[in-house]
Design a binder for these strands. Structure first.
Length: 546
RNA sequence: GGCCGGUUGGUCAAGCGGUUAAGACUUCGGCCUCUCACGCCGACAACACGAGUUCGAAUCUCGUACCGGUCACCA
């Protein structure tokens, strides 16, 4: 077989050479140890937590080492493509604070010198190397139809052989003569380009940065490298792109592990240096008592859009991901409560090998903890940012009452034991609603605290003696005085011991105040809340009951 | 089924041949307290199983079981 002639027949338009490519995409000029990483999502329109999970790892590895982190769109499967998916992806990544140094951009353009960063635009690049493989006798056109392949598979299944095109099953197409191939092509028969593998029972070992040594059988499959439309499969595109874009580390889910031998094979035959592979564990979820991979159909919390809609802060998601990703993150966080998470020395070696269950309780705890550590202004800005997207009414309230809101966000923040009231921006809108007349609602029943007559008496007396300038202890002394006057126990314990001697306890009295002021019996400190609201609102809300 | 990966409390996990087997979340008690939240104290609860190596194994080896992934002209 004249390989050169075959290559020209198959790729008549491909005139560039591998050397041209090497020149066009030279080694990157980076300091020693700088990592080049990427994410390579396919634009299906659904951005999920796993995308972010791997993105965070790749971003950390690159930026922590002073390297480059880029975005490559892997759209070699046009059947799955969804319009607007790239924009959605970039904006989601942006929302969660993952920024690319180079790569595809939302407007369809490119950023950086190693592009195009969209695989569908790299056709001629792949063809250069595909042609080279044909010339070297390492690849051949295959005219097998889907039916023929199915028949082979059935035969293999019956014989308990490995399914696939290899060895004797590949013979028919491997041994086609140049003339036969010419005739097939002239007849318009579609063909794919297959890698010509050696039948072997050798094994390969790969040093995975997360899992350590991995021992696998060497590839013996004649896998497809170019589909009949001339577009490469993932395997071929991955190897060509990561070489040419000079990736040093490939971070991807563990579901790629089984195809690793193909990639190793390609890197070897091309004579290229393998990147460091980092196969991450998949996030799992409990379902019917069993563990399973998170699925986009069944698990809404898998979609990144879920976190945006719920108003789960970017920082919360990072904190959560980092605790899941790096086993020593929590420890570090405890020791460095005020250090930004980007200062955490992330390490691949500390990653878990097994799939972590997605734990909503843990996320909620991290959320409270994280937001609690933010100062009021940061909370305000983040919250407002979310409201502008998802809750216009609240956005306008926050903008109308910035000072009151800031003061409200500072309630219970001083001291060693700050309150942890806010989990999500959505829930914040609910929790904080009583600070604004526009959203104030009565949620608890005043009559559960005392009879209407006592309510009237109490509020009248309270208003009468109310001095907005009182400090907390002066204020509370007055409350106690009224409590006693009305025949209520000043000490809750006294009432508990001897309920018949009192009409109630001070708890009932203060709860009335809370309900009048906040609409609910459970709320932050009354004195503090009163001062956030201001004297006018306090008197207005209380007067209704007097 | 073949290949690959994984297996420490309910969940996430530390552990790297000698530990009373950390810690966090959850749950449940209790304390603090004008409610709630916070905080504090405490409790429950784990090395999948079986061999082997070793004076000694959660840690090393082998096997078994279970869970997961993957076997496309999808990524």
């Amino acid at each position: 077989m004249d390989n050169k002639a075959l290559a020209d027949l198959l790729f008549p338009d491909s005139t560039l050479t591998a050397e041209d490519m090497e020149k066009r995409y030279p080694e990157r000029d980076l300091p020693e140890g700088a990592a080049v990483t990427r994410i390579g999502p396919s634009p299906t329109g659904f951005v999920h937590l796993g995308n972010l999970y791997n993105a965070v790892i790749a971003e950390r590895i690159a930026h922590q080492s002073g390297g480059v982190f880029y975005l490559r769109i892997e759209d070699t499967d046009n059947k799955r493509e969804v319009e607007g998916a790239v924009e959605a992806l970039i904006s989601a990544m942006d929302y969660f604070g993952v920024h690319f140094d180079e790569g595809a951009s939302a407007d369809g353009g490119d950023n950086g010198n190693y592009g195009p960063y969209t695989q569908s635009k790299r056709r001629e690049i792949y063809h250069v190397f595909a042609k080279q493989l044909v010339e070297q006798g390492k690849a051949y056109p295959c005219f097998l139809t889907a039916e023929e392949i199915n028949a082979i598979r059935e035969e293999q299944t019956a014989a308990k052989a490995d399914p696939g095109i290899y060895g004797k099953y590949a013979e028919a197409n491997r041994s086609l003569t140049l003339d036969e191939i010419k005739a097939n092509i002239a007849a318009g028969k579609p063909w794919v380009l297959r890698y010509k593998a050696e039948m072997t029972d050798e094994r390969i070992t790969v040093e995975d940065a997360i899992r350590g040594k991995i021992d696998m059988p060497r590839n013996f499959m004649d896998f497809v490298i170019l589909k009949s439309d001339g577009i490469p499969t993932y395997h071929f595109a991955h190897v060509v792109d990561d070489h040419l874009m000079r990736s040093t580390h490939v971070i991807r889910g563990e579901d790629w592990l089984p195809s690793l031998p193909m990639h190793v094979e390609l890197f070897n035959v091309m004579g290229w240096k393998q990147p460091v592979y980092c196969h991450t564990a998949n996030l799992m979820k409990i379902d019917d008592g069993g563990k399973r991979k998170l699925s986009k159909r069944k698990d809404p919390e898998l979609a990144l859009s879920y976190y945006q809609q719920e108003g789960i802060s970017r920082d919360v998601v990072w904190e959560f991901l980092l605790t899941v990703l790096n086993s020593n993150y929590e420890e570090w966080r405890l020791a460095n409560p005020d250090t930004p998470y980007l200062d955490f020395p992330y390490s691949i070696a500390k990653m878990s090998h097994s799939g972590a269950l997605f734990d909503m309780d843990k996320l909620r705890d991290i959320a409270k903890e994280t937001i609690c550590r933010m100062d009021a202004k940061t909370v305000y800005d983040n919250w407002l940012g979310w409201c502008e997207m998802y809750n216009e009414q609240f956005a306008s309230l926050l903008k109308k009452y910035p000072e009151r809101t800031l003061a409200a966000l500072n309630v219970g923040k001083s001291g060693k034991k700050p309150r942890k009231d806010i989990e999500t921006w959505k829930q914040a809108c609910d929790f904080m609603s009583f600070y604004y007349d526009e959203t104030f609602t009565l949620q608890d029943d005043m009559n559960e605290q005392a009879s209407p007559e006592i309510q009237k008496q109490f509020f009248a007396k309270y208003l009468e003696s109310y001095d907005h300038a009182d400090d907390p202890s002066a204020w509370f002394d007055k409350v106690k005085a009224i409590t006693e006057e009305l025949g209520f126990a000043v000490k809750p314990k006294d009432y508990k011991k001897d309920p018949d001697s009192y009409k109630g306890s001070i708890v009932h009295i203060t709860n009335m105040l809370r309900i009048a002021l906040t609409g609910r019996a459970n709320a932050p400190d009354i004195h503090e809340v009163s001062h956030v609201l201001g004297e006018d609102i306090v008197r207005a809300r209380l007067s209704k009951w007097a």
